[in-house]
Nucleic acid binder design. Structure first.
Lengths: 233, 233
DNA sequence: CAGTGGTCTAGACCACCAG
DNA sequence: TGGTGGTCTAGACCACTGT
């Protein structure tokens, strides 16, 4: 232990980050093993472990049993994106939230939706198209398919008071999902719903969620022009 | 302890997830405190703590000292996006990677870039425009500004053998950054570089990174039409 | 096989904050 | 001010994997 003790896991993490940033430990280098760092810092190995484990999860370190810990060569940076309920996202900007259900029908989905949900060909789903507005301006257009086998109660809901987005988050527990971010060129139909020009670039989020009971819902959100999704690291 | 012991933190986490999914614990409910869960599961409190801490980080639980732990009402879902070096992203798809530097000049950046980087008006930066291709097809167009004060070595690099993206990741340690995902409509200039039609929706990633030494670089990546960024939860 | 990280434990003290 | 989560410790055993 050369300097003052570094006893909290955050202090350890900061110190390790600093050494990597200052090239004391260079990309590809092995760093001392946990027990040795614990001795140097004057703390328990568990403390070092927690600090290093999180750095490994961030992609800054590569850790392998027996081999040891090394500074990652090409660090994979992990951006975390918080996806909250649309109403809260809009209200957080200080705007007035409203939603309007444009389409509500029970029918068999097109093939691409069947693919994504992994459901049978003839199976009917609840199809909902909803426009969410911020201070009256179109914010996002939601095109959603809900599996009534996984969520029978959805058939009794009119979604006049609560949006499909919020109702599902509140009422239906889900265990997993996948997200795809992309861009699309606005079609005349999208342009009309979002009150924008045809041929504008629009930000798109596709999401499919499931639980133990099977696939719950598959949804495409098409955002208004200029929408940005931000995150920090 | 009613059933068999649940001794690993993952088993504890799974069990808690199950109880939330099955509505044993409903949104808004307080769940038993750590010590009680440890007794029920037959494990140490630290084990329960690790399981619950991660669930709280995911946004599934709300934890506060003294108040206790409750199931989140409107869970904020966190999608994690891995941002790797472009070369690796392309080679992971089994395609051949190449890059070509289109522009390399030292000059003062436009106001919007100055804003993002928080640098002075007259300060010159290295401006680089680079096209990355996969099997010869345009993949992403990178428009980058590098701060030579933070990275003096950048002025000696021609980027013929290694791309600006990879060089910076390898050579320059950075401590933080922010990301913005959005969509744009392809201008004639972008369309020409990316070999796509004018007016197509394109996926855009803006990133600014810094370290203790100050702002390092600000970059805009404009991806080819049809690009998707995926993640799972 | 042996060295390293991964995890668990029992206990302790501290920090925060709702009542 | 007491109850709860947040953290640290010293030690132990296990799991994986390079050699």
């Amino acid at each position: 232990m050369t300097g003052p003790a570094i006893r909290s896991w955050q202090a350890v993490q900061d110190e390790v980050r600093r050494r990597i940033a200052r090239r004391v430990w260079k990309p590809g280098d092995y760093i001392p093993h946990e027990a040795e760092l614990a001795r140097e810092f004057g703390c328990a190995r568990a403390t070092v472990n927690r600090a290093l484990r999180e750095l490994a999860e961030e992609g800054l370190l590569d850790r392998r049993r027996k081999a040891g810990t090394r500074v990652a060569l090409n660090p994979v940076r992990r951006a975390r994106i918080d996806i909250q309920v649309i109403r809260e996202e809009i209200e957080a900007k200080g705007a007035a939230f409203r939603h309007a259900v444009l389409v509500r029908e029970l029918r068999a989905p097109p093939p691409d939706i069947r693919d994504r949900m992994g459901t049978g060909a003839g199976q009917a789903m609840l199809h909902l198209r909803t426009l969410y507005t911020a201070d009256g301006a179109p914010y996002v257009h939601e095109d959603r398919w809900v599996n009534p086998e996984a969520v029978p109660a959805v058939l009794d809901e009119t979604f006049s008071d609560i949006s499909p987005n919020e109702w599902l988050v509140r009422e239906v527990p889900f265990e997993g999902g996948d997200f795809t971010f992309s861009a699309m060129t606005s079609t005349p139909a999208e342009a009309s719903v979002l009150s924008c020009a045809v041929g504008e670039g629009l930000f798109v989020l596709d999401r499919t969620t499931w639980s133990a009971g099977g696939v719950i819902t598959s949804v495409r959100l098409v955002f208004h022009p200029g929408y940005r999704m931000q995150t920090e690291m």
